[in-house]
Design a protein around this nucleic acid. Sequence first.
RNA 1: GCGGGUGUGGUGAAAUUGGUAGACACGCCAGACUUAGGAUCUGGUGCCGCAAGGUAUGGGGGUUCGAGUCCCUCCACCCGCACCA
Length: 924
Amino acid sequence: MEYGFRSIEKKWQDAWKQNNSYSVKNDPSKPKYYVLDMFPYPSGAGLHVGHPLGYIASDIFSRYKRLKGFNVLHPMGFDSFGLPAEQYAIEHGIAPAISTNQNIENFISQLDKIGFCYDWNREVRTSNPDYYKWTQWIFLQLFDAWFDRKSQTAKRIDELVLIFSKEGNPSIACPGDKKLFFSASDWNSFNEADKESVLMKYRLAFCGVGEVNWCEALGTVLANDEVINGVSERGGHPVVKKKLRQWYLRITEYAERLLAGLETVDYSESMKDMQSNWIGKSFGAEIDFEINSENELALGKNLKVYTTRPDTIFGVDFMVIAPEHELVSQITTEVQADAVSQYVEYVNSRSERERMAEKKISGVFSGSYCKNPFNGVLIPIWISEYVLAGYGTGAIMAVPCGDERDFKFAQHFDIPVTNIIGDFFDGKEANPTKEARLENSGFLDGLLMTEAMVVALNKIEEIGIGKRQTNYRMRDAAFSRQRYWGEPFPIVWKGDVAEPLSEASLPVELPPMTDLKPGPDAQGPLANLPDWVQYEGGIREVNTMPGYAGSSWYFLRYMDPKNEHEFCSREASDYWGQVDIYIGGTEHAVGHLLYSRMWTKVMFDLGYIGFDEPFKRLVNQGKIGGDSRLVYRVRGTKQFVSAGLKDAYETDEIHVDVSLVDGFELNMEGFKKWKPDFLGAEFITEDGVYKCGGRLEKMSKRYFNVVNPDDIVVKYGADTFRMYEMFLGPVEQDKPWDTKGIEGVHRFIKKFWRLFFDVEKGLVVNTSAADAASWKVFYKMLKKVEEDTARFSFNTAVSGFMIGVNELTDLNCHAKELLEKFLVILTPYAPHICEELWSQLGNVGSVLDAEYPVLEEKYLIETSKEYPVAVNGKTRIVINLELSATQEEVEAIVLKEPMIIKWLEGKPPKKIIFIKNKMINVVV
RNA sequence: GCGGGUGUGGUGAAAUUGGUAGACACGCCAGACUUAGGAUCUGGUGCCGCAAGGUAUGGGGGUUCGAGUCCCUCCACCCGCACCA
């Protein structure tokens, strides 16, 4: 019987669906294991061969865990809100809900062909009202919470109101407005609107006016991580700063816990680094400098700077403040007024993009000075865009001998440089060392900079001109979009007061719309629906939530997907707990992963779940790149020249569809028919063959290098496809797709099949006992495969299977008792063929419910070993020795070996090193 | 610039702890069965050499009886961040 994979795979995929084979219950009697894939955005392009890599790995791991007796949660869903569906709707007039559902159907059909063991009963779609009802509900929890810095937890707004009414806010610094202070009696005298505006400055989800990243082309605001080098991540459109009323998440309050939490999870070093760099914690001091100015407005004012190097305070040669700094107008002197206003105007005219692109040194002197509190020296205050308004205090003390940017600025404007680090400074380049002994530094003279840091900090605090200060680079996350295809906010505006809707009125459903043009005043499309906007005597919020809203908590919904009363019951989340293993790409390092970590912490703080890190272990699968093929057209002609000859011509390279190329050889007839342009193509060949050029690049439609998994599955079957993707190399590594190598894996599967079936004789499995040699092969394989699977080394596990099949074939082993066990351990990798053979052997039920074989060490015990014998570290011969051999015995045997005697060249051995079970080395 | 990672045959890659470098495959070469093969099977295949042997894990140096693995140094490539004081 032939291995007919097409009918076998179809048969079992249907059977699994019919029998609900992969449905999983919340069963506290069994140990749980939660394996999660990052759910996809269902794009119109469908899956290419790179997407399933992580899914296959997680599928193998899930099946393996299930066989090992765990109750495994392995769900899949769709991150179905987002920009592309909306753009598609604008371009093609198809409602996002419709195109999204079509795309999802397509995704599911592609996934099902690969034989994944998802429990589709638990599927979630972020754009379904039953799902986003709870996204909105969680938003209301964020809205109704503030962060208590003392206990480092989120608490309810009620509690804050109570504190305010008793003692005002002196003990609870306002995160939204550092200068806001009021007493209990102030609070009690505020009217409702005033109180609400104060509370808004504390809420974890809050509305504020701020500079946002505005993208004109997309007609929306983007989060910082959606802006790359001043252009939008999606589409590459220019992004400028714009002031708009926006919703935000106060993620900055969680900076410390997000940082600390990294210590408790198993992510890769680079992932942890990316996150902690993004959070960007730094230690330093805020120091007040007395301003000395001719401008009366500056009288008695201080300039507050932030520095991480208070030890260099005697090296300060100038101050720099951001052009947006509030003191700019107050410290500008009459003489400098024109220059300053010109400069500020110039800075405002520059877009974010320009600022990033050309980093030229620019700035202007304000005309005023600061006084160094320790030596009374007057320090000029400059204004320059290299200091950012949004970080620290928006003002710095510049120490050119120690800071590169300060040094360049000083050079550019001829500001004299004070050297406080002696020989460490050569006058040509700043030296940011911390190892120098300080000079010209008053009371810090002679101290090592690292020591001086503490001394200076203490002194600064002692005389009351500043304090220690920790800063974070991370900003609050913009949480609203002027778009249609996202979750509506459960908020109604009554005047300037944002009123949350009650839980009973959720979900706030997205009203159907066909024409998605933007509303007036840069508002989203929803603003065009007056009937919807008017609601209960107020006006609905017309922004929608960003793409990351739904994905910040979906892993919780899978635990209890049909619950109509709660986002997820506490019982379910207590049982399933953290995601044990989370698999996905690195592109979500600072977006999705950080937001879901924050949401989890808030839900934990408010008592809805029992853990505060969502993902215990994170594995980042590599990207599979495309292997493009290129043809070379002789410029201005219809002639195409083969790659080996192209240098003799002036050519233009053109990407050609990889399906028209076998290896590097072009199918010339196919090429002519591919596009009308090429109909009359002529070829300059090498011996009748047209060879294409090759290039590794992203797998993408526009390079015509996309390989669709469906095609591979049709040609080789899902089992081969799954194993080949794993065999390609380590899951975490990027690698190019190469269809050629798949033959080897396919051969392996066919060879495996032949252990059971002979083309002529049919079933060849027998019921006689397997011999010890076969068992040894089997258990050796079991050991390797199990260890490799457990440590996510799937490529070596596949090779373990190959070795097993090769050796069992050589041993002519067809014993049922052994092959049945083999089926069980291969099932995670190649589920269809194993299910088929399992039933062919007469078993009832699924191989997934079989028992995972237990390693029997007795078959692996060796009594002797082939020892390599080296002379001075170079292996010369291999000899077989009993494992019980002692040092003396080994020495005697080795020294009698003719080859060893030859290599000793008559010299006496100095030492013989014998490492049991490893090797022997004779030292001369 | 800062942080992280990777460099091993013609190719994808192996080598948990320092112990026979290149497992397992692809490709290639030779052969068998074949009208034929892009099916299947057998053998070979890092490089130099007829061989004995030599030589090889990006380059250089070190530690060690022994280094792909540990240390120092330099180089190349990839990813992330980037005026964050």
